[in-house]
Design a protein around this nucleic acid. Structure first.
Length: 658
DNA sequence: AATGTAAGGATTTTT
DNA sequence: TCCTTACATT
């Protein structure tokens, strides 16, 4: 690996347009003006991590680096977009040309171009999680292992095992030994399913989320000319949220930097919350080992939160079993202590939050500066109903996605099948919408289309079947879509025309679903290319796409509800953390494992550090007996109890007195 | 082979 | 509680 940084071209003006020294603190300044070569920035919560990246982009561009040769890898597309916007504001529009996105979206782009090197055509389709599970289910039934084995893992468990193996670079056997001892005896069978699954996808030009990363890594690893070209294309690689990248992502970053060593990673080990995706907070410390000669810079001055909030969040993370030392401080003084409250029930909790939101709104806090955070998507159900009833607009991030709704998936299956006729799992889905077509017929027809093309849908023998007529209509629609060069919006129109009668036949609540189809159509209008639309929908939650679509004006009228995972990197004036109860946070699924509990603590830390001025800690008393459904034990989160000076750090609020 | 029905079983978090 | 899966019926 060539470590010597490529000399950076000097800008024309001797005096830079941006006053870096006065806009940044010394540590930030050092990071922003780093001459080149590997750089690790350990940035505590609220220490200006994003600011540093934004200025770094502007600095590089100002130095004369071609913005298109800067690659900014972030956790969500939205984050990249916002950073580029901010950089454009402090410098100029050139910053909007920076190549940015998630690892997955970047890999998608690269594989569209170079996929042939790893056995994929440019027209491959992406299977989301439920598509992937459907494939596994087909294989599972096909191979029939469940017949003689009692308790053979279901599609969901199979997916978890296979995905874990991909993300952690382990074999199926290792994953089983480590996490699924109950299935260890089934290793050969599960291995076979995994192999069949891989082959199935390859033969049909389908990639799942994990393939995007691993195939991209394989491409860079096994094809030096491609690696070299890409490395020179991206002369500066910037990676945000590095604590949540897994080994495959880190390898991709390393390969991209292999020619020049200009890799900058920013992250905070205390905020690592994606171990289920194969991230390990300790990895961040391997950076200097992986890139000898690294510069390491730590940012410790917090600009986000008031002192009382910071004292509290410092106390949370103090109890972490293992962390790299770093103590956040702020120069700001004053501010209110976090408020701790125990509503008598979950409903009372929703009422309490509603009332406090109303008060803050009256005080003039803009709606979009108020957020309610929680561990799992359904934790906000009560609150959503209540907010709706009281006319308070909200947006929700995380949890059940638009794209996961069955009717949206149906439409996307049509579109995927036109882009990639070999996508049998999409065909499988479409065909089963027809009356009289079940799993067996669908499978046979799908394989026929893959082997012999669309015409196989209208063979003479099929015409006599009762679903012959439906097949003919389907065939005509799909033929028109594959051959015609009409714009995306027209294609969608054609799909909807064909789909609407099927939707009405299949779902009792069809009228409720139709508006969603219109939203999808609206969303698609600005796309010129169907492949891009499909990739975007699969790789970025449409909520985010819609939020961007509607523009900032629209977003400002809404209070934010979000899972803690989706709140990463964001901040609000007022933050509520609800369901702060043992069994919810920490989640009951993590209680058996110490590492998992540690991660839950970091999750709590991430949530609490989102707050700038007001932080509410809401721990409702759980009523009723613990059923399978409600596993919470009812006591306040252990993370509160373990803070010795809790009484000094928070103010108690008795909701009944209010 | 498709569809309807009853018992069984699992729930976080995301690209 | 709700969704999936296995089984029985058409």
């Amino acid at each position: 690996m060539v470590r010597g940084p490529r000399p950076m071209p000097q800008g024309q003006n001797k005096t830079p347009a941006i006053p870096y020294a006065s806009a940044l603190n010394p540590a930030q300044y050092q990071a922003v003006t780093h001459p080149g070569g590997p750089l690790l920035v350990i940035a505590g919560a609220g220490t200006g991590k994003t600011r540093t990246l934004v200025y770094r982009v502007a600095y590089l561009v100002e130095q004369g680096v071609d913005p298109r040769s800067i690659l900014l890898l972030t956790f969500t597309r939205k984050a990249a977009q916002e950073m580029m916007e901010r950089a454009s504001q402090i410098l100029d529009a050139r910053c909007a040309m920076v190549a940015g996105g998630t690892f997955h979206s970047f890999a998608n782009l690269i594989l569209r171009r170079y996929g042939s090197h790893v056995g994929y055509p440019a027209s491959f389709t992406i299977a989301d999680r439920s598509d992937a599970e459907d494939i596994l289910n087909l294989i599972r039934t096909d191979l029939g292992f469940h017949k003689d084995k009692a308790r053979f893992p279901k599609k969901r468990a199979l997916m978890n095992i296979i995905s874990r193996a991909a993300n952690c670079q382990m074999s199926v056997g290792q994953v089983l030994a480590q996490e699924y001892p109950q299935y260890e005896a089934l290793e050969p069978e599960i291995e076979e399913i995994a192999r069949t699954y891989a082959r199935y996808k390859e033969e049909r030009a389908i990639m799942d989320y994990d393939d995007l990363l691993t195939k991209c890594r394989d491409l860079l690893r096994d094809h030096p000319p491609v690696r070299q070209r890409l490395s020179w294309t991206y002369a500066h690689v910037l990676i945000d949220e590095f604590q949540d990248t897994n080994a495959v992502q880190a390898e991709i970053g390393a390969f991209l930097a292999s020619e020049h060593g200009n890799i900058m990673a920013v992250g905070d080990d205390c905020q690592s919350i994606y171990s289920f995706r194969g991230a390990d907070f300790r990895n961040i410390m391997d950076f200097p080992k992986r890139f000898p000669g690294s510069t390491v810079i730590t940012l410790e001055e917090n600009y986000r939160s008031t002192q009382p909030i910071l004292s509290f969040t410092n106390a949370i993370i103090e109890n972490a079993r293992e962390k790299y030392s770093k103590r956040l401080f702020t120069k700001a003084e004053g501010g209110a202590k976090p408020i701790y409250t125990r509503p008598p029930s979950e409903l009372a909790q929703a009422l309490y939050v509603l009332q406090r939101i109303q008060t803050h709104l009256q005080e003039g806090v803009p709606p979009h500066q108020i957020a309610v955070l929680f561990r799992a998507g359904w934790h906000s159900n009560d609150l959503e109903v209540l907010l709706g009833k009281h006319g308070i607009a909200f947006v929700k991030y995380g949890g059940m996605k638009f794209i996961e709704a069955a009717h949206i998936k149906d439409v996307l299956a049509f579109l995927k099948a036109t882009v990639n006729p070999a996508d049998t799992i999409s065909w499988h889905r479409i065909l089963q919408l027809l009356e009289g077509v079940g799993p067996v017929t669908a499978k046979r027809l799908a394989e026929n289309v893959k082997e012999k093309g669309l015409e196989s849908l209208v063979s003479k023998s099929l015409g006599k079947r009762k679903y012959g007529q439906s097949l003919r209509i389907l065939h005509d629609t799909m033929t028109q879509l594959t051959t015609g060069g009409e714009p995306v919006s027209q294609k969608i129109e054609a799909v909807l025309t064909a789909y609407q009668p099927l939707l009405e036949a299949k779902y009792d609540d069809a009228p409720k679903r139709i508006p969603d189809l219109r939203s999808l159509q609206l969303l698609a209008e600005r796309y010129e290319n169907l492949e891009t639309l499909l990739a975007d929908l699969t790789l970025e939650s449409p909520e985010q796409a819609l939020a961007r679509e509607n523009g900032p004006r629209h977003r400002k009228d809404h209070v934010v509800l979000s899972t803690i995972h989706s709140a990463k990197g964001l901040e609000w004036h007022t933050v509520f953390i609800i369901h702060l109860v043992d069994g919810h946070l920490p989640s009951s699924y993590s209680l058996h494992d110490e590492d998992a509990i540690e991660e839950e603590r970091r999750l709590f830390y991430v949530a609490a550090t989102r707050a700038k001025c007001h932080l509410y800690l809401v721990a409702p008393k759980v009523q009723g007996q613990a059923s399978f459904y409600s596993l919470a034990t009812g006591g306040p989160s252990r993370f509160l109890f373990e803070i010795g000076r809790l009484g000094k750090l928070v103010r108690r609020d008795d909701p009944e007195a209010a």
